[in-house]
Design a protein around this nucleic acid. Structure first.
Lengths: 341, 341
DNA sequence: ACCGCATAGTAAAATGTTTTAAATTTACCT
DNA sequence: AGGTAAATTTAAAACATTTTACTATGCGGT
């Protein structure tokens, strides 16, 4: 009384056994007469039979499905990532289950369990930025105890050795800073993300490296610890001492928009009074009144690479973890001018 | 030899039968002694047993999973929608499989089949804008032949009667136009989407209604048929006769950005020379140099409503189709000024 | 001692496939 | 004919659950 046509229906209809149908359809047991093959294929075509993937998954112990855990799909960073993942999945005939955690650690945990229950063949995990080292370890221990292959996305976590595909944040920080230095800037304010995050630290490290390479002293007073929001970008301008910097390097575009709008509101001319470099190279940065120069991360590719890593090699967790680090580049627009002072 | 602990493991461990374990865990067959219950629950807790959802799905014929078919998750419209859907799914203990079609009809079709194969309990379908009436019918016939409950998102399709949750496009078109008229504008250019799409037609209808309500003649020369892209917004300004309009109503924010930037490049002062109203109320519209007034659609709510519709009622397709129409509103910012001429 | 009934628990079937090992049929060779 | 090898095809088990229908045990009442 089932709605869908099953393999047994095809069997009855053709007079062969389910085994025969299955083997012919899967190209196994290459010893069927050509006539039988044709009959079976014909019946399948006519009836529109398609194997129930739930049953297939149960016996094959594989779902050809990936789980993606991110904090918010509305964030363009994650939607780009998701697009990359989904495109690769499609290409390989896989599917994607999306889990939005709203940046809540507990939802990270619950999502991992649910995905494991659903039998996904791999989890792509962009850890909540709410996670400190302890919480991160909790997530990773859980996922490992569940024996689901996984790869971390974008964000490394201190000691824990695991598969990861990310962009080179140190390099990104360096690129942006070096560009400003080359334009003659020495007093470069820095709007960072939360400093307990590895990627933030790495960007800051790149900033310092570029500075010291040009023998420019590092000044703590030019560092503002933000949290990657528009608001924190705005706040930074209230806090940083006016006139103490000629350029600002914001660790993401969103906070760059914040400094941009606050600076403008104060009557500053961008880039002639203050230069700005962002990070992320969001599409909209191009549309700003003065288009924003920004560090471009190959986010889409992070998605495709990560998916490829798992799909190509489900034995992934038995081998030594792999680290794929993609290189950022600088998208030069109009928000930086030569330093006049 | 399976990795995960199964119900049989719990059965052996406790000395009870799998039936007992299952019934206790599912709160069925209420005739077990309290002692037995405790023993079983204890064993479950200690072993970390969680039912294999693939097996559960096979027997229960339900997956508690929704499929979402959209053209591009990077489009903020869709990521908002997806967020709504995912949030509702999470709330109800369901999951979401995401299918990106890159706006290709063939991928719509294939996605529908794959989702049916995976046994999703419902499909949320935002039809590719590439679809004309014929293709749309093909999709709908397929999905109906597969007997998967579904609801169309945002875009209606002429004759085919089905569940749909969408926003009131006619009202949106009216709202925007009326606002411009109230500001004294009479010659209002209109940058539409493809005119074979129902939602475009409806917005245009709203525009005409507002016009005729104020006895302003409709002029074909002020209509530019775009395709919802930045480029088509830019192109429109090249095509429309300069000076023939004092305001423009773009049918989405993206094309509004296009007219905005082209107009600015020509030295126009917005809003004093030309007023602009967009449609979508994308987050970034607020960040523009002169923030864009735009029709706000409750996109997130379209997602939650649609998910709720299916989750709450899997018998959905046996009943008469339901239409949920959400109302748009106008987000007023700074891109409209009183008409001077 | 037997009946009826409530209580506590379980065996077996079912879900739709794949896979393994075996059965059947055909063909060929003496 | 009889035997063996090769060519086809299939029965049954397995995957991990839930569900249906049944069994077993004990107890009170006559």
């Amino acid at each position: 009384m089932s709605l869908r046509v099953t393999i047994t229906d095809i069997a009855k209809r053709t007079g062969f056994s389910p085994t025969t149908i299955s083997q012919i359809l899967n190209g196994k047991g290459s010893r069927f007469s050509e006539e039988t093959r044709q009959i079976v294929k014909q019946a399948v075509r006519e009836s529109g039979y398609r194997p129930n993937q739930i049953a297939v998954s149960l016996v094959k112990r594989t779902t050809k499905t990936l789980g993606l855990i991110i904090s918010d799909i509305r964030n363009v960073f994650f939607s780009n990532l998701a697009k990359g993942v989904e495109d690769k999945c499609w290409e390989m005939g896989w599917n994607l289950i999306l889990c939005n955690t709203n940046d809540l650690h507990v939802r990270d945990l619950e999502s991992i369990k649910v995905l494991a229950d659903k039998g996904v063949d791999g989890i792509l995990y962009a850890m909540a930025s709410e996670c400190d080292a302890e919480k991160a370890n909790m997530s990773l221990n859980l996922i490992e105890s569940l024996k689901v292959p996984y790869v971390m996305l974008d964000r490394t976590l201190g000691e824990h050795l695991c598969n990861i595909v990310a962009t080179n944040h140190q390099k990104g920080g360096y690129l942006a800073t070096k560009y400003l230095i080359d334009a003659g800037h020495e007093r470069i304010a820095c709007i960072t993300g939360p400093l307990y995050l590895d990627d933030t630290k790495q960007r800051l490290d790149g900033y310092r490296t570029a500075l010291s390479e040009s023998s420019i002293p590092f000044r703590q007073s030019l560092i503002y610890e933000g949290n990657y929001t528009l608001e924190s970008g705005m706040d930074s301008i209230n806090v940083l001492k006016e006139g103490s910097y000629t350029a600002v390097f914001a660790f993401n575009d969103m906070s760059a928009y914040g400094v941009y709008s606050r600076l403008r509101a104060k009557g500053a001319d961008i880039p002639n009074d203050i230069s700005i470099v962002g990070y992320d190279d969001i599409f909209f940065s191009e549309l700003l009144d003065v288009p924003l120069t920004s560090v471009h991360q190959p986010v889409y590719e992070v998605g495709t690479e990560a998916a490829a890593l798992i799909i190509g090699d489900t034995e992934i967790n038995s081998k030594t973890p792999r680290q794929v680090i993609l290189e950022p580049s600088l998208t030069i627009r109009s928000s930086v001018a030569r330093c006049k002072s």
